[in-house]
Design a protein around this nucleic acid. Structure first.
Lengths: 226, 226
DNA sequence: GACATATAACCCTTCGGTAATTTACCGCTT
DNA sequence: AAGCGGTAAATTACCGAAGGGTTATATGTC
């Protein structure tokens, strides 16, 4: 037997154990799980694996095992490892950007620099509560250099940075600082902070998104007035 | 030919092109580069590769090629990939911790929360100026889970955290906050900030350690008074 | 029987790791 | 001076496992 195929028995705790039990409303000529459903399962499993181990270390066999299918299924749905990664990237980038977007739109425009970061963090926590590793698909340091993947990830991170840029520029120019490099470095600091909080959250699975949000409120005020 | 051995010709820009030129004071019965010297070359190359790509993606052949030797040399000096990584880890952990230590000792004890972070950053920048990737050997997310390597890295990161803990605790208790989880999360935020700045620094090779130190002074004050 | 879903078994490359061999320098003897 | 062995440094050529990717085949439902 090759790879981690589950053979006849069920794979190790697949996301959806595929019993012979029937599903309703299935299209004609179909044995297993409908295409759209499988696609979701695969994407969820891939986001988890890629986020946990990074593109380089994640293995297609592990993703397949997590879903409870075999490797060729992944290649039938997404052409290649890079294709699957790209699909994950697009999906979670959209989710992250939308979370940031609505958080910024909903936050009080008054004294933007005060509460806006906390609003963004809260939005991210609730958007990623059940996919905490997803953040690290966007911020994967193991992508092959000079690859299409790396460029795509950088593009999406650039979109996130563009959203942050408004608040950053306001904050800096409030101090008479117009240095574009300072603004760029501060964007990195911000996303790095989010990464750090996501990492801590992953290490503390019992903490809910609301817990994290409250904690960050405390931490941000503590940092700001030493 | 196997691996990336350079064959007869010199490897692509080896750290020290080994010409037939003689060295002085070499022990009896010796052909090539003395042991201590090679060891340094290998460690430097390995830190760079491991820091760039992470343990999982870094390859022994690439490290060997960077030094200008072949794979078996690496195994003669360090027993295995993990052994080499461990040697890198110990080395740069010592360097990082010493930098933080002296920065904290030298910083003015007055108004610790004010200038201490900047002093630590400055110390790190000057300690890692010519090894900017080294930081990511300590903070490598690609280490195999449940491995000795991961435990060793966590141990060293714990030492860094312990140094940070003093300042963190002071800062939080100044706000009436004694929550140990808050303190832990704030430590993660701090090391995440350092990681972000190191990443930005790597992307801007023209910036000197002094440049970075000055930039961080501006950024820290901007962040603290929004 | 036709179609969609799924799998077993395989190929090929990369990479960690090893065994056998070669090269060059030293100090000693003749 | 010429040779000789010892030793450290280094290389070539290989092995086995892991992983990305493919082909041929099976299975169930309409």
């Amino acid at each position: 037997m090759d790879s981690t195929s589950a053979g006849a028995g069920p794979a190790a705790t697949p996301t959806a154990p595929p019993p012979p039990g029937r599903r309703r409303g299935r299209p004609a000529g179909t044995k297993g799980v409908p295409r759209a459903e499988r696609e979701e399962q695969i994407l969820a499993a891939a986001v988890e694996e890629f986020g946990r181990h990074g593109h380089a270390s994640a293995s297609m066999a592990a993703i397949a095992a997590r879903v409870g299918v075999t490797k060729p299924m992944l290649y039938a749905y997404f052409d290649s490892k890079d294709g699957l990664y790209l699909a994950c990237l697009e999906r979670i980038a959209a989710r992250v950007i939308e979370a940031i977007d609505t958080a910024m739109a909903g936050a009080p425009a008054t004294t933007a620099g005060e509460q806006l970061p906390h609003a963004v963090l809260s939005g991210l926590f609730s958007a990623l509560e059940h996919r905490r590793h997803a953040w690290f698909v966007l911020y994967d340091r193991t992508l092959p250099p000079d690859s299409e993947l790396r460029r795509a990830a950088q593009r999406h991170r650039g979109t996130v940075d563009a959203l942050a840029a408004q608040g950053i520029a306001a904050l800096l120019s409030g101090h008479g600082n117009e240095d574009p490099l300072d603004a760029d470095a501060l964007k990195h600091m911000w996303t790095g902070t989010v990464s750090a909080l996501m990492g801590w959250w992953i290490a503390h699975p019992d903490q809910s998104a609301r817990d994290m949000s409250a904690r960050c409120a405390r931490l941000l005020t503590a940092v700001r007035t030493p």
